[in-house]
Design a protein around this nucleic acid. Structure first.
Lengths: 332, 332
DNA sequence: TTGTATGCGTTATCAG
DNA sequence: CTGATAACGCATACAA
């Protein structure tokens, strides 16, 4: 193979330092048995030449890349950004780095998982993506990196999921609604393919049913504010004043804000007087005085930190469902 | 070196298919000269064994990783998310993948650039990060991957920057303000270390000065809404009714919204009657009826698409300053 | 069309 | 403590 690159390698440094290339490598190994004087010489030569170890070659030999493949598909939800920020920062502190894989129509889970395998990623993290647990299981069959699911539940075999438990959240929300006199609650959910939609809705419905209260259901079909606006507009224009919901619980904050804009801006309803609005996630936007969105805070920091413990190998990976916290503001 | 892994390699497939490992590799090379029958056999064996080429080994040999290191530091600005989405999607379409590097106190540009070099990234993209052009130049000295700067200007040697030109933006905004009778404009900017702060402010000041109008300056110090709120609160509480600004141009939409919340919610001012508010970026939130933020849209799609052309090697990389577009809503 | 030798830059292991 | 040899899995050039 023709040498057509000018990359500086350990052999180059070795030549300059007057040692063998293995000694050069030892100089870069914190625990390498090497004389201090030799190491100093090598490091000096390395600095002169601008040498830096090639991680590709290292990974090939050690079978560790220190890279985590992160699969994301809903870029419309702003909560992803702070979570991404915390996750990347924490992993970088551990010497690991994140490869971001955007899941969409032309790049599905299988493609992404294959890419992660071919790149020898140390682990794969599915961050809030919509997936079919069954097909995921078959995709992960055989060898391949360990797989973690963040912010979504998943009972597939051998997959560790870190999720927010909908039960306490919806129990609290239900109690709050009933305590504040709401009797005609509705639930606004996004795409049906997301398990969170089902989980949260069912949890809320069950809680309300125990008190003899029914839950109306509105389908936005996606997690976009405009979809929420459209769905709310359609639903409320068809409901008479006696059947009109007096509370709207939304699958996430984005939907809640999209709904609120229509309720207040177009339908002239007052929040919370005419209708209570509750979200889920606790995104920054919801905290603005203009919205004052009452919501359920997902324990992002906790989830991310725990995930990093797993990835760093400090704790044995176990699926968990964390609680989160009720954030009461002015919208309910 | 002991063989301690169960990774399936081309040799394994070769054994099953009854050919040499080089033939296996040819089967996975779209342009490889190989008999159709042989290829079919090999692919069948590969499928059985679950073989997939090891990109690490390939990259080591070809000296191409098809990985782009993306350096990001301001995770507080929601516009990053859609841009990230478009960039990753476009690159994945080109067979490239993004490694996300979070720049912060404990992981600076030098660390990130070194990591990118060690990992043999094909290119480095600085996405709206605050950096010192001088030190960047020295860091990039020598070999190393080509470096691109997205959403920020940069005249460092050998660096290609894709940016929004502040001149036409501020000319338009200035004209709009004057045409709508504003005479006491102020500019709200984020951290001083960001070149956009200086560029936009200076451009606006120059335009206004030509018409004999002075520009007051408010310093938020960071890109957080709370900082904007604090700065606006402080500034307006000190200004008398005759010196109070009648227009507030903000370095970005986040600052604009933070400011608006205080202006309307705390100071009881009407937007745009009492004061016009203008942002920069055009984030989704600003388009909500509750804000109706008039702003300057950065041409994200254009910038990203052009960057991808460069990265894919279809166009010779050249620094550009794109125009963008005035988005007039209700706030000014 | 197929097989062979050699190189990519590192790590692991062993000999001195 | 240092040097040497074999591996990691694939690509390239060349020979058959």
């Amino acid at each position: 193979m023709a040498r057509r690159s000018s990359t500086i390698t350990s052999a180059d440094v070795a030549r300059v330092a007057g040692v063998s290339k293995w000694t050069v490598i030892r100089a870069f190994d914190p625990g390498g048995s090497i004389a201090e004087e030799t190491r100093a010489n090598v490091l000096k030569a390395a600095l002169e030449l601008g040498y830096t170890p090639n991680l590709l070659a290292r990974s090939l030999a050690t079978r560790r890349t220190c890279q985590v493949a992160l699969l994301v598909d809903d870029f419309g939800n702003p909560y992803k950004l702070p979570t991404l920020e915390r996750l990347t920062a924490a992993l970088q502190r551990e010497g690991m780095t994140v490869t971001l894989l955007n899941i969409n129509e032309s790049f599905d889970h299988l493609t992404a998982l294959t890419d992660a395998r071919r790149r020898q990623a140390d682990a794969v993290v599915l961050f809030g993506t919509a997936f079919n647990p069954g097909s995921l299981e078959t995709m992960l069959k055989g060898d391949g990196p360990p797989c973690y699911v963040l912010a979504r539940d998943c009972d597939a075999e051998g997959i560790v999921a870190l999720d927010t438990d909908p039960a306490p959240a919806m129990a609290t929300i239900s109690a709050h609604l009933l305590a504040t006199g709401r009797r005609l609650p509705a639930f606004l959910c996004g795409p049906r393919t997301y398990s969170t939609a089902l989980g949260r809705r069912r949890a809320l419905r069950d809680c309300l049913a125990q008190q003899g209260v029914a839950l109306a259901e509105i389908d936005a079909g996606s997690y976009e504010m405009s979809s929420a606006a459209r769905a709310v507009r359609a639903f409320f224009s068809q409901s008479s004043s006696s059947t009109r919901p007096d509370a709207l619980v939304c699958e996430n904050d984005i939907l809640a804000i999209g709904a609120m804009e229509v309720l207040r801006g177009e339908l002239g309803l007052k929040v919370p007087q005419d209708i209570a609005v509750i979200g889920f996630d606790d995104i920054e936007m919801g905290a603005l005085p203009s919205f004052g969105l009452t919501t359920w805070q997902q324990p992002w920091a906790e989830m991310v930190d725990l995930l990093v413990e797993y990835l760093a190998g400090r704790q044995p990976p176990v699926s968990v469902r964390l609680a989160g916290q009720f954030i009461r503001r002015t919208s309910a």
